[in-house]
Design a binder for these strands. Structure first.
Length: 325
DNA sequence: CATCAGGGCCCTG
DNA sequence: CAGGGCCCTGAT
């Protein structure tokens, strides 16, 4: 069964992200399905950070504004942090939440864009972010494959409870994923008993690859999108959609927009064309032509907006039909 | 009760 | 490059 880890030691550090930076829309993505990996409330965000063999509880607190952003990073750990360790943690958190990424050019470029400008005003300073590491997000990607969201949630819960770590800090209890070296040793029958179906094979096989081929996230971060994409597609169980998720979220690539999954197709058709169904090719062509090197980020502003509306209680009938939780 | 698609991917021909 | 099959579940 999963380990329980209590983190009592506390260290605090202040970071000033590059302006503009909107804390809430950056850390919390309402289009994502709910899980026990993180906890969000306006101005605050809790999650577990695994770094090598170490585990930290991280609490982010917004202390600034969009134009003059400031984030308090509170690190909970088992033992007192060395200076080096503190720097490693802060650097990793900065990468995952894009504290140092300057996207001001995006706003300048599309300030007067007919479609985008209203969304840019509304969500000014929203960045991409990913609380998980590449392996963790890959697990989520596998949970999403060929099923309905309700089942993805169920599979995530049951797997985290059985193989994940439960981390207690700051009055919260959150989970994080197992290590690949642990998952590769679990039998397929044991996994199938948890009703993850044929995904059992994927978890085992891809975890083994992570260990044996030493898949290095830090190296992947430095590659061009297309090179990284090629490497990711070689992983068993990673196809165009899962690669897209990993490239845009874990590796923070804003330029690619080369794959639209069926459920996204329905949403983009409504939002961009006011039609029920436009072909993926047409959507891709349109988005790329309009927003070029910022295609993914631009589409994201439009996409997340409708989910924020939903989050705030403004239910949109056709969207509810697509989500089906 | 049976059938079927669902926030894909692999394998085969 | 197209199409079948895959775990499981709730919707129809």
């Amino acid at each position: 069964m999963g380990k329980i880890i209590n983190l009592k030691n506390r260290a605090s550090f202040f970071v000033k992200p590059v302006s503009p930076y909107d804390f809430d829309s950056t850390v919390f993505k309402p289009s994502h399905y709910p899980d026990h990996l993180k906890f969000y409330e306006p101005g605050r965000y809790w999650f577990v950070l695994r770094l090598g063999n170490r585990v930290y509880g991280i609490k982010l607190v917004s202390k600034g504004t969009i134009r003059s952003p400031k984030v308090q990073v509170i690190i909970f750990s088992r033992t007192k942090l060395s200076k080096k360790e503190l720097k490693e943690v802060i650097d990793e958190v900065s990468y995952r939440f894009e504290f140092q990424k300057d996207i001001s050019g995006f706003f300048k470029k599309f300030k007067n864009d007919k479609i985008l400008s209203s969304f840019l005003k509304k969500w000014y300073g929203m960045h991409g972010s990913c609380a998980q590491d590449l392996y963790g997000l890959l697990m989520i990607g596998i949970f999403l494959q060929n099923t309905v969201i309700k089942r993805s949630i169920q599979m995530t819960d049951v797997m985290l409870k059985k193989y994940g770590i439960k981390v207690k800090f700051d009055g919260k209890e959150l989970y994080y994923f197992w290590k690949p070296e642990e998952m590769m040793k679990v039998s397929e029958e044991e996994l199938r008993a948890l009703k993850v179906g044929y995904r059992a094979k994927l978890f085992r096989k891809v975890s083994e690859t992570f260990v044996k081929e030493r898949v290095d996230e830090l190296k992947l971060r430095k590659l061009s999108v297309q090179k990284a994409r090629k490497k990711l597609l070689k992983l068993y169980g990673v196809g165009p959609e899962t690669a897209r998720i990993l490239l845009t979220e874990a590796l923070h690539h804003y330029e690619i927009f080369d794959h639209v999954a069926p459920w996204q197709q329905k949403i983009y058709s409504r939002l961009l064309f006011k039609k029920t169904l436009i072909s993926p090719e047409k959507i891709i062509k349109y988005v790329r032509k309009k927003w070029g090197e910022w295609a993914n980020l631009a589409a994201n502003y439009i996409f997340e907006d409708v989910f924020w509306q939903r989050e705030k209680g403004n239910k949109i009938e056709w969207l509810e039909k697509e989500i089906r939780r």
